[in-house]
Design a protein around this nucleic acid. Structure first.
Lengths: 270, 270
DNA sequence: ATGTCTTTGTGAACGCGTGCACAAAGATGG
DNA sequence: CCATCTTTGTGCACGCGTTCACAAAGACAT
C-alpha cells in the first residue's frame, strides 16, 4: 500500500467514508476476476474472502453505495462491477502524465495496471534533454519544458511524480499550476499543495521500515533487547557532508543517477 | 500510499500504536535532513511542519517512545534520530531479497532508498532461466530454484514480491516456508499467510483509482462553481461507453509469469 | 531568586472505523 | 400458501486515532 493520504482531513465524500473508498478497488478487482469466470452472483462471504476483508465490513461498504444485493442470494457480479466502476469514476477516460522517467518511471510506464481500468498514459516527461524523443514503453519521452502545454492539450488532471526527491516539489508546483488536481507521489518528500489538490504518497522506504519494526519486535520478544548501541557512530556520520542548500539535483532522471528516487541519505548504522 | 497493512488486527506493539509506527519513518527522514544541516535542536512545531503532520500528533507520537524533549527548547536532533532508528530496528542490518525482476523489480533493485537505512539487497531472484546470471543493479540474478537456500544462507527475514499476480501467492508460500516473516507485496493480489507473518501491500492501480474517485467528485461539484482555472477539466466529462469495459487488458497468459515486459499485470489469479 | 516566556507532555473529548448480532427480506420447496 | 432457509442490511457498542487545551517543566533574563 502506498503510505497514506496527505490532505483531506475528514471529508466524507458524498457520504462514502474514505476507508470504504480505499477498499472499493479491492472489491472491483475480485469482482472482475469473478466476471471473467462468468460467475453470475456472489455472496458477501465469498467476495469478502476473495478481497481479504471481513464480510460485515464488505456489506457495510456496499450499503453506502446503495442496496445492490438480493437477500438469500447475494450480489449480481456484473451489476456490482458497473456500479463500483461508476462510483470510482472508471467509466471515463483519465489521461495521466508521468514525470521523471528513471528506473521507476519507466517501470510505471510499462505497468499494465495503469492502462487497464480507464487510465491512459498521455505523456512521459523528463528533465534530461538526452532522454527527449527516446522511446519508453513505446512512447517518446518529452522534455519538462513542454510540461504545461502537455497538461492543457491533453486535459490531464492526474499526475504521477517519480523524480528524485529534490525535484519533486518543483515539479509538483508546475503540475498544479498547469491544472493538475490529483498527484501520485513516489518521491520521498512531503509535498505541499494548495487546497483542492489531492496527494497520495507511495513510499517504498517507509514500507520497509515499518516491516523492520515489526520484524524486530518479533525477534526481540523472547530475547532481551540485544542491540549494541553506538550512538556516537550515527552522530559522526551526520556531521559529514553538511553543505549549505539542499543538494538540488535539479532535473535528475538522467543516466548519472543511481536510483529513480534520490533518497535522503540516512544515518548508516553499523 | 501503499495501500495499507494486511494482517495484524489491532496489535499495539509494545504500547506503540500502529499509526505512530507508520509515521516514525516520516519523522526520521525530516530529522535526518536537519541533521545534515547540523541543526542541533528542533521544536515540535518545526518538525511537524517538515514532516507534514500536526504538532500535537507528533508530540503524542514521541510520548510513546519516552520523554526525549526539553521543555522550552525542543528535541535534540541527533538523539532523536538515534532513538527512532533504534525503535524502528534500523540499527541492525536487514538483508532483503527481491523476487520477480521485471521492470518494477529492477527499479526496486536500483532504488537508493533500499540500500540506505539498514536495508541491504541480499539477492535478486527470478523464475526466468534466461535472466539467471544476468547483472541487475550490479548483482547477478539468481534462479527461483535456489530461493530456499538463498533465504537461509543469508538469514533473510524480509522479502519483496514484484512478480506478476499469478505467481505471487506461490512465491509467498515458498518465502514463508523458507523462513521469511515479513513481506512487501507489489503484486495486485491478496496474499494469504499464516499468523506471525506480516504483509504490507503496495498497489499502484488502487492508488490511482482512489485519486480518480476524488477527481470525479471534484469535477462533479465544480460544475456549479466557476473554477475557471481548469477549462480542460470539463471537457474530460465525456461519457464513456458503459458496456463491459471492465474487461481487462489482454494477456491472459495466466500461468507463464513474466510477460514480454515481465511486469505486474492487473489480472487476478483464478 | 524570581518572574517571564517558550515548549513539552498529556488528560479528556470527540469522531471515525470495525465487528457483532439480529431482524428483515427474499428465495426455495412442498 | 406456508414453512424454512439463506443472506443482506444495519443498529449498536467498542476501540483506536486525532485534536484541543492546559498544566508542568525548564530556559533565560533581570
Amino acid at each position: 500500500m502506498a503510505t497514506g493520504r496527505t490532505h483531506r482531513p475528514a471529508t466524507r465524500s458524498r457520504g462514502i467514508p474514505e476507508a470504504t473508498v480505499a477498499r472499493l478497488p479491492l472489491y472491483l478487482r475480485a469482482l472482475t476476476a469473478l466476471s471473467e469466470r462468468s460467475v453470475p452472483t456472489v455472496s458477501s462471504e465469498e467476495l469478502a474472502a476473495a478481497a481479504g476483508v471481513n464480510s460485515a465490513k464488505l456489506r457495510k461498504d456496499f450499503s453506502y453505495l446503495g442496496s445492490y444485493g438480493t437477500r438469500g442470494v447475494g450480489y449480481d457480479v456484473e451489476y456490482l462491477v458497473y456500479q463500483i466502476s461508476r462510483e470510482l469514476g472508471l467509466t471515463q477516460d483519465w489521461p495521466v502524465v508521468i514525470v521523471g522517467i528513471g528506473n521507476l518511471g519507466a517501470a510505471l510506464a510499462n505497468y499494465g495496471g495503469f492502462a487497464s481500468r480507464g487510465f491512459r498514459v498521455a505523456a512521459l516527461i523528463d528533465a534530461d534533454p538526452a532522454m527527449a524523443g527516446q522511446p519508453v514503453a513505446g512512447m517518446p519521452v518529452q522534455h519538462t519544458d513542454d510540461l504545461e502545454s502537455i497538461i492543457s492539450d491533453n486535459g490531464v488532471s492526474i499526475g504521477v511524480i517519480s523524480t528524485p526527491a529534490g525535484a519533486a516539489q518543483q515539479v509538483c508546483d508546475r503540475l498544479v499550476a498547469a491544472g493538475v488536481t490529483s498527484i501520485l507521489n513516489f518521491a520521498p518528500t512531503v509535498l505541499s499543495v494548495p487546497d483542492g489538490v489531492d496527494v497520495r504518497k507511495v513510499d517504498l522506504s517507509i514500507e520497509l521500515q515499518i516491516l523492520a519494526f515489526h520484524e524486530q519486535r518479533k525477534a526481540g520478544e523472547d530475547v532481551a533487547e540485544a542491540a549494541a548501541v553506538v550512538p556516537s557512530a550515527a552522530r559522526a556520520v551526520a556531521e559529514a557532508a553538511a553543505d549549505s542548500s539542499a543538494s538540488v539535483d535539479g532535473d535528475g532522471s538522467g543516466d548519472s543517477r543511481k536510483g529513480p528516487d534520490g533518497d535522503v541519505p540516512a544515518v548508516m548504522p553499523a
